[in-house]
Amino acid sequence: MGAGHAHALYQHGHSTVHRMGPEAKLAAGFASVVAIATTPREAVWAFALHAAVLAAVVTAAELPPRFVLRRLAIVLPFVAFAFTIPFVAGGEEVTVLGVGLSRDGLWGTWNVLAKAVLGASVSIVVAGTTEEARIFKGLERLRVPVAITLIATFMLRYLTLIADELRRTRVAMRARGYAPRWLWEARPVASAAGAVFVRSYERGERVHAAMLARGFTGTMPELDTRTATRADWLRGATVAGVVAATALAAAVTT
């Protein structure tokens, strides 16, 4: 939350990864994340391989490494949390720099760190190379209910507008000397939130009227016809296949 949402999610480009049909990219991304999440933590070499594959994809996507790293800040809270695990976990202890730490806990830290960072990186690559609207189009083609993808599309369309509205209210409050420090001073913030909800809901009704005015009858017209090609699916399957094979090999050998 917070800082991470302020950055642009999509990096404009024309790489092979950008041009892939969204459904193939999403399917490959999802399969890779599942494979990463199920890789046994003891197989450190497997995580190194996963990271190498991801680095290759980032390069192919012509994404600036700084963009990926900056957006990875979103997992920082969990990184901080992960470092507390060896102190609270039980089991056999090892001594590191004179401090007794749980061996399993240390593995736990590694496990949370590696999977959180790699998993988030996959999302960052997918979102960084696919326009928001096409992500939802892709989900729809992967049989995610249309209602969900349409609600998500509308949500993103109006998110910045509503966030701006909340921010402006906040600035207006501050301009009149409101500087709350304690929870019991929060009433004006809540009133503002309530007012913004009412305005949002009324906007929803106006948007519905605008849709009806242009002949909307309950189903959205299918306009984006750029579907994934066989080559797209093949590319996705290759990447996901390598990751999955690594995870499988790791599971067998540990």
Partner: peptide
């Protein structure tokens, strides 16, 4: 999916 906030799996 978009913000990498919480794992997809």
């Amino acid at each position: 999916l978009l913000f990498a906030d919480g794992g997809v799996s």
